[in-house]
Design a protein around this nucleic acid. Structure first.
Lengths: 332, 332
DNA sequence: CAATCTCTTGACAACGTTGTCAGATTGAAA
DNA sequence: TTTCAATCTGACAACGTTGTCAAGAGATTG
């Protein structure tokens, strides 16, 4: 690899002058600058970031640690958002998938610290409380799609309550008053928040909350099928169903078809997550609340870069991002 | 950050001795070694990889450039496989998503070269011919899920022919003799290869290839619906359908249900890609040929690390990886 | 007991950059 | 011509490591 000194020799100047040209120092005569730039081109010189960052102390690298980027079919968008934002600042991303193994987590953080990353994003593949290794306190960290109970680390998560409220509101605005909610039975932030939003929306429209319309499943298609069947076989069945996620909606579709009902004519359906691969492929296509994965990744990197004080400390704020409604055919 | 010299001072030895301990040099007395290790722990010392790699010339980093990791719901497994393999060798991965923008591609490669990555993986989100930037010739490169027409770069792709053959064979072995094939109409390696495999399997079983049983769609659920309907409304309808991908299979399910037929009793169905989110959620669950994304990522990194000669050159071989059958309910 | 060998340790240079400072050149003002 | 400032350039140290070499301390050999 060509070095700065070789470029200097080729251009007939000192290596310090080449360094000046590279760093845009104005105190270089146009002649010299041109000569140097020619030599840089001629030798296909590329600065050595290892040397540069040793000297400056800045690695221009951000670490991304996650339990499962790959498994979740959308979580990759977190990486995409993070990388895109890092890109704007000429930084690159280390990505490590730990599969929730604490050993791998520890090692990953250690390796990143050795490479002197400027900060770490710690993400999970669904919104939950996390217990990241203590080692993270050594370096600016932003939690993505998760949080720690004592709120000691900054964190960005979807606004579940608002998402639930807006999904329900969308159905209410179409005139529906009996709205079923196929919720997840696990007490995760998503199920708790969306239920709260569901209740708020009903209240806003003066509709009395009927606990019987909320059926608990386990988040997959077959439980969506069971829950929907349960709900729709009642005499005063709802005219719309809000599903905890698109997989449950997929199961609900089967149940609705099974009963000979039509979407959205007889039953409107709205999902959550906006998994393109399901929502856009179902027949009719499924309206869904989109999880802001891209935006969370983007926000996290931006916060890391922009909001660290001189010592690299970050305010431990909790940031919520809305889940926009992606309207398709299933809501009419 | 603590440096080697500070550790040396703390332990009362020369910094060179600390370096020896770090690198496992046997010529250190047990006493000294223990003293040094205590100091390392006490000061929470972490070697500076930038300095180390400047000295040794090895960055211990591999670059991963892809058009779309995040969009495809499974392509993330390429990263996972690559990272896992890199991990075994104590290396980290830079990941950049270029969204097929040549400008970003160029810049990404430039940034990676500046960081002196030891090699680059260039991946695409579906199996196709690629035209990577010429700059890649400066560094060992492995193509993942794609290839260049002149085969000048090593490449790892799914064995489409074998996949098509084994999918068809699975149906033949269940006794099916009239097997429909909902193929993709685009002349991509996947559609061409799987068709060839389909034909080979039929030939192996002495079944005459009937062109009428191959219907061309466009790879999504709605075209799967149309194609399946077309095929199943004929009087001599097939008893099994091999679908180009799981999305088309999803549409085929709708068509089959629409006609009042049952899976797998009346019609067996087999998909391709093994998108968990579809295949495992459909009712009944869908048998599918799994794309070896994880294995491709793994193979690529392994090849990069193990097979470079002393100058870093790689033999431009083309490696094919099989697509295993994941058997579920839809094939009975 | 001298000579040799082995084990352990440290001094110093080097990797490729950037920061600090001083020197050289130029042009203008006195 | 002299002086001074402004502009440009280069010498050198430093960043935190590893590689090379040599030196000191014991142990072993003849």
């Amino acid at each position: 690899m060509t070095t700065l000194k070789q470029v200097a020799e080729h251009a007939g100047v000192s290596f310090k002058t080449v360094s000046r040209v590279l760093n845009g120092d104005p105190n270089v005569s146009p002649d010299t600058r041109a000569k140097v730039q020619d030599s840089i081109k001629a030798l296909d010189y590329r600065p050595n970031m290892a040397a540069r960052s040793m000297r400056t102390g800045k690695s221009q690298i951000i670490g991304f640690i996650t339990d499962e980027v790959a498994t979740g079919p959308f979580a990759g968008n977190i990486i995409k958002g993070a990388q895109h934002e890092a890109w704007q600042h000429e930084k690159l991303l280390f990505v490590v998938n730990t599969e929730s193994d604490p050993k791998i987590e520890q090692k990953a953080i250690a390796m990143m610290l050795e490479r002197r990353v400027e900060g770490i994003l710690y993400g999970t593949w669904y919104h939950r409380e996390a217990t990241p290794p203590a080692m993270l306190s050594e370096i600016p960290t932003v939690l993505v799609d998760c949080f720690v109970s004592d709120q000691s680390l900054p964190s960005v998560v979807p606004d579940e309550v608002r998402g639930g409220r807006e999904a329900t509101t969308a159905l209410l605005e179409k005139g529906h008053r009996r709205i079923g909610f196929l919720n997840d039975g696990n007490p995760v932030p998503a199920s708790k928040g969306r239920l709260m939003g569901y209740q708020q929306a009903l209240a806003n429209f003066g509709v009395v909350y009927d606990e019987a319309l909320v059926v608990l499943g386990s988040g997959n298609a077959s439980s969506g099928y069971d829950c929907a069947l349960n709900l729709l076989q009642r005499e005063d069945r709802p005219t719309a169903i809000f599903c905890f996620n698109d997989r449950m909606a997929m199961g609900a579709y089967d149940a609705i078809r099974k009963l000979g009902l039509r979407i959205p004519k007889d039953i409107a359906v709205i999902g959550f997550d906006n998994l393109e691969i399901i929502a856009a492929q179902l027949h009719p296509t499924l309206s869904s609340m989109q999880l802001p994965h891209y935006e969370m990744g983007q926000w996290a990197v931006r916060y890391l870069i922009d909001c660290a004080d001189e010592t690299g400390n970050l305010q431990p704020i909790q940031h919520y991002i809305e889940c926009p409604l992606i309207e398709r055919q299933s809501t009419g």
